[in-house]
Structure formats: C-alpha cells, structure tokens
Design a protein around this nucleic acid. Structure first.
Length: 159
DNA sequence: GCCAACGTTGGC
DNA sequence: GCCAACGTTGGC
C-alpha cells in the first residue's frame, strides 16, 4: 500500500464537501505527472492526506483513501465541461481519474507554515520550493508523522 | 494582488 | 529539438 497527498482548493472542492459526498471522482486533473501517478501507482486502499491549497491557512486537513483505481475521466470528453480536452476521446482517453473516499477530518489541522518547522518531515514533497504538483507520493514515515500530528480517535492507517 | 516556479504550446 | 511566449499554480 502506498500513501499520497492530494491538493484541492477549498473554494472548488473542500474536505467538508467530500464528507457530504462520501466519495468523489478526482476528475479535472490535467497534468501528466499527476495523471501518471493515478494510472500507474494509485491503488484502491491507498492512504490519502487531504490538503487545502490557496486556503487561510493552507493546511493538511484530514484523511481519505483511494476507493477505485483509475478510469477514463469523462469530463475530458464533455464539450460543456471546463475540463474538456478535444484531444481526449472515449476511444483514446488522455486523462484518467481515481475515486477518493472520505475517512475523517483531523482534530488538528496542520498548516503549511507549521509543517515547515518539523525536522521529521524533511524531504516531504509538499515542502519543496516550487512544488505545485496536485498529487504527490508520501513516504510511510511522513504519513505517520502527519497522522499523529493531526490526531484521530480511529485511524485505519495507524494500527 | 504579486510574482516565482513550473508546464505547455507552437514557430522556426 | 530548441526556446520564447504564454498560462497556471499557489504561497505570501
């Protein structure tokens, strides 16, 4: 099993929204590196840290998991969608998306500025200068550090 | 709102 | 294949 961090601007899709929806297709990703992670590496059951970007403050806010492996992103075929891509067709889809399922909000949010101070997170992709990737792999040790910092009564990933 | 960093596009 | 121009991300 692998671990991930997924970014979303709360104004477009927040963890609160995911809680209401329970599950969502992570569609609209139009970056090849992020797409390749979804297609090749993300598997059902993987752990996901949910990050609010462009937020006040930007922070890791909770936990989710991958509930379905990648499938073609149908928004890329939809002319009315803002995610429409004329180069992506049902016969030859260019973009894919996984399904993400809500687990919990952390009891403590983890603002970016605080995470930068932690020696135990050295090497975490999120903290690297210029890192804009919306889907990032997270090492198990970093995942555990963040889960413990976030505090949850029941955390399926910390047994 | 600014702007650094990064990704993509397209002319050549 | 190079690279300038442009667009986007996202912290601050």
């Amino acid at each position: 099993m692998r671990y991930w961090l997924m970014k979303s601007e709360p104004s477009s899709y927040s963890l609160d929204k995911l809680k209401k929806d329970k599950k969502t297709m992570w569609d609209g990703v139009r970056n090849y590196q992020a797409r390749n992670y979804m297609i090749k590496d993300m598997k059902k059951g993987d752990g996901v840290l949910f990050y609010h970007s462009n937020a006040k403050p930007s922070a890791v806010v909770g936990l989710a998991k991958i509930s379905k492996n990648a499938v073609p992103d149908i928004t890329s075929f939809d002319k009315k969608s803002v995610y429409y891509d004329p180069k992506s067709t049902p016969e030859n889809p260019r973009w894919h998306c996984v399904e993400v399922e809500y687990i919990a909000h952390f009891n403590k949010y983890l603002p970016l500025a605080e995470l930068k101070l932690l020696k135990s997170l050295d090497g975490l992709a999120l903290l690297k200068k210029g890192m804009r990737l919306s889907i990032q792999p997270v090492l198990k040790k970093h995942f555990r550090v963040l889960c413990k910092k976030g505090v949850l009564d029941k955390n399926p990933f910390l047994k």
